[in-house]
Amino acid sequence: MKFIKRLLLTGIKKSPWLLHFDCGSCNGCDIETLAVLTPVYDAERFGVINVGNPKHADIFLVTGTVNRKNQEILNNLYLQIPEPKVILAVGTCALSGGIFAEAPNVIGGVDKIIPVDIYIPGCPPKPEAILEGVLKSVELLEDKVKNGKI
């Protein structure tokens, strides 16, 4: 059974579904993430769909800083995504808190709450960079499948 599952999952690199969560960012990274899906960059070429439902997602794309109120939601969404999954932190804020690191209600980067696989720096990162990150995460997904970590 496990073997069949793994065989089926070899196709995962061709169909990475994405869940985007704005976790307290300034919108800059969010609109760039959305721009990745629109005509000029067209991530659907690679089978990427923004599903908006954690239960259907493979890639969890998080932008922005973590604060006291959204840390729980971030964790919930993370737990709802079925394996195998990859977590992508987009933008300086998601990496470390960025310019807001010292603000009173900011806890810090996304990796303080959930494990992060790929970091994309930039304020905001350009859509090309986000697309590159998504494709890198696809490779990572494939690795996870091959190493039997499902």
Binding site: G24, N67, N70, I99, A103, V106
Partner: peptide
């Protein structure tokens, strides 16, 4: 509300008036 709240108005006490532009 509160999912994006950072409290950046308070940063004006630790970042000077020129740096606050970036904030």
């Amino acid at each position: 509300f509160g999912y994006v709240h950072r409290g950046l108005e308070k940063l004006c006490e630790i970042k000077d008036i020129h740096k606050m532009i970036q904030v």
